[in-house]
Amino acid sequence: MKIQKEIIEFEEGKSFKLFSPSLKNCFFWHYHPEIELVYVEACNGIRHVGKNISDFEGSDLLLIGSNIPHLNFDYKIQTECKQLVLQMREDFLQNIVFPVPEFEAIKKLLDRSYLGLSFSGETKRMVVEKLHFIQDKNPFESLIGLIEILQILADSTEVKELNNEDTRIKWFLNDKIRMGTIYDYIHENYNQDPNVNIIAEDVNLSTPAFCRYFKKQTNMTFTDFVNNYRINQAKLLLLQNECVTDVCFHVGFESLSYFNKLFKKYTGETPTEFKKKHLTKIAV
C-alpha cells in the first residue's frame, strides 16, 4: 500500500496506449514516468493527485505529469464507473514534441502537467469525443488524433491546476506510512466517529506526529478530510433522492444545521439546493 512505481508496457510501433482499467476494490497509490490523460465517469468520486485531494461529480478529465503520485480514480466508487486512460511513452515529449516548433503550445502544456491539470466544460466534451474516436483507428490516425487532443488542451482556458507546487515522486519517496491504511480506515468509519488516535496507532505514529504527517501529505487536517469525505458520500446519497435529514445522519453528522452549514461550505449550496438542481438535470 506504499507508493508503487507502475511499469507500463507499450505495443511495438506505438507511442501511446489507450485502455479502460478497472481497479475499484484496489488502493493503487502509484507513479510512473509516462504522462497520463485520464477520463473517469461516475456519479462522484475522489481525485488524489500529488498533494491535492478533492472530489468530482459526473465526470473528470485530468492530465497528470511524469512521476506525479496519484490514486486510481475509481477507488471506492460504489456506482457504475467508466474510465479511459491514455499513457504516452516516456520519450514522447523529447522525441515527438520538442523537435517541432509548431508544437510549442503542447510543449508548454506537458511541461505544466506536473501540477496535475483538471479540464472541464466544452474542452472536456471535445476531448472525450476524440478519445472514443481514436480507440479503433490505425496507429497513424490515432497519433494525429492525440496531437489534436493535446492542442485542444493546450488552447483551453477551462483548466484548473490541482497543485501549486512540485509534487513529483522525489518529494514522496521517504514516505513509509501506508496511505491505503488511512483511506480504508476513513472509508469504514466515516459515518461513525473516526478517531485520529486509533489510525495514528495503526500506522505506528504518535497522534501529534500523525497529524503533522497527514497535513503535510494532503494539505488538509484529518478532521477536514473526514468531513470532505462525508460530504462526498452525502452528495451520492442525495443524487439517489434520499431525504436530506436521513443523509445527514447516515454519513455521521449529529446536527442537521451543522451538516447544512458544512455542505454549503464545501459545495457552495445547501443539500436541498444541490438535490433540487442535480435531480432536475437527471430528470430532464
Rank of each mutant, 00 (worst) to 15 (best):
Lys107Cys: 07
Ser22Phe: 07
Asp111His: 13
Lys264Asp: 07
Lys124Met: 14
Leu84Tyr: 09
Ser59Gly: 09
Pro139Asn: 05
Leu162Gln: 07
Ala154Ile: 09
Glu57Ser: 14
His187Trp: 14
Lys130Met: 06
Asp166Phe: 03
Phe98Asp: 11
Tyr229Leu: 07
Met1Phe: 06
Asp55Tyr: 11
Gly65His: 01
Ile134Gln: 03
Lys137Ser: 13
Ile96Trp: 03
Val100Trp: 06
Gln4Phe: 10
Gln87Ile: 14
His30Thr: 11
Ile46Thr: 09
His250Lys: 15
Lys170Cys: 06
Ala105Asn: 15
Ile134Ser: 05
Glu188Pro: 02
Lys235Trp: 01
Asn197Tyr: 04
Met220Tyr: 07
Lys107Glu: 11
Gln240Val: 01
Gly65Asp: 01
Pro69Asn: 04
Lys51His: 06
Phe98Leu: 15
Leu71Met: 09
Phe10Val: 05
Val49Gly: 01
Asp91Val: 07
Tyr213Met: 01
Ser156Thr: 04
Gly13Val: 11
Cys211Ser: 14
Ile144Gly: 00
Glu254Arg: 13
Leu173Arg: 13
Glu122Cys: 05
Tyr258Phe: 13
Thr221Cys: 11
Val244Pro: 07
Pro21Ala: 08
Asn189Met: 06
Glu11Thr: 08
Leu63Trp: 02
Lys24Phe: 07
Gln192Lys: 15
Asp175Tyr: 05
Gly13Lys: 11
Gln94Arg: 13
Thr280Arg: 12
Gln233Ser: 06
Glu104Arg: 12
Leu37Lys: 00
Met179Gly: 05
Ile282Met: 13
Pro208Cys: 08
